[in-house]
């Protein structure tokens, strides 16, 4: 059962940031936080409910950067016209997160801050070279998602910092695909391929299989060797598979993702 705690309900970012400390932590959808508390793994004395802070919600396009408020749910992102139009791969990823309840309740900020290694969102965002904006009483800083995710359940974020938004620079002429192999509640491996034709850059990001997403960078998809990418990952051994198996399916899914990328190409 849930232990006792105080509930704080700020309505502005400034107010929310003022409430935060080691013992007083952000609470958004609660899909991770409340489970951890119920299991007795975590016992903050106060929860700072950030769902009533309007600045933390919504999706905006500004100067070629798509900004998603931290408290926005997966479902809203998946259905958003801007996202679907500009970053269809992200919409697909968000549509495939967990289940309908998790998508309706869970937030993008909560997903990143919890840093559960089996995240689809983090893998996709790393492929887009997205960053997050973290605010504390001392000011605001921008951190790349690839740097925010430091390890399993470990995000580079101070207790008094609030993740305010995710910032995704819109790529130019590009194709992107995300394929995941999932047989349990969360993905065994997720592969994002982002081919930025105007910039002559190609990124392959493999997530969920190890503690943090692994990135391969080149100029063209034809350079990708799936078995080499499989050697880059450091699989977490668990009930979904041994290291050997996970490396194997990583290669399979990189190959499939590349094939899907070809298929998605208009010409």
């Amino acid at each position: 059962m849930l232990p006792r705690f105080d509930l704080l309900r700020p309505t502005t970012v400034a107010e929310a940031v003022g409430c935060l400390s080691e013992e007083s932590v952000p609470y958004c959808g609660g899909t991770e936080l409340l489970l951890a508390m119920r299991a007795g793994l975590y016992r903050p004395s106060a929860l700072v409910d950030i769902k009533r802070v309007p600045e933390l919600r919504g999706i905006r396009l500004r100067d070629g950067v798509l900004s998603i408020g931290a408290a926005t749910s997966h479902r809203v992102v998946a259905l958003d016209a801007l996202v679907r139009g500009q970053l269809p791969m992200l919409a697909t990823v968000e549509q495939g997160v967990g289940n309908a309840r998790v998508r309706a309740q869970g937030s993008v900020g909560g997903n990143l801050c919890f840093a559960e290694p089996k995240s689809d969102l983090a893998t996709a965002l790393v492929a887009y070279e997205a960053s997050v904006s973290l605010t504390s009483a001392g000011g605001t800083r921008e951190v790349l998602v690839s740097e925010l995710i430091q390890g399993a359940y470990f995000a580079d974020k101070e207790p008094d910092e609030l993740l305010v938004s995710i910032e995704i620079p819109l790529p130019g002429d590009h194709d992107a695909v995300y394929l995941k192999y999932q047989t349990m509640e969360r993905p065994t491996v997720g592969v994002a391929v982002m081919n930025d034709r105007s910039g002559r850059r190609c990124r392959v990001v493999v997530g969920a299989v190890g503690e943090v997403p692994v990135v391969w960078e080149g100029t063209d998809p034809s350079e990708v060797v799936p078995d080499e990418i499989a050697e880059l990952v450091d699989p977490v051994v668990d009930l979904t598979g041994s290291a050997r198996y996970k490396r194997h399916v990583t290669a399979v899914y990189v190959r499939r993702a590349l094939r899907a990328l070809e298929g998605s190409h208009p010409s």
């Binding site: 047989t183 979904t240 598979g241 041994s242 198996y245 194997h248 399916v249």
Partner: peptide
């Protein structure tokens, strides 16, 4: 017959 077992 989990995926890994079947693959093996």
């Amino acid at each position: 017959l989990t995926p890994e077992r079947v693959w093996r």
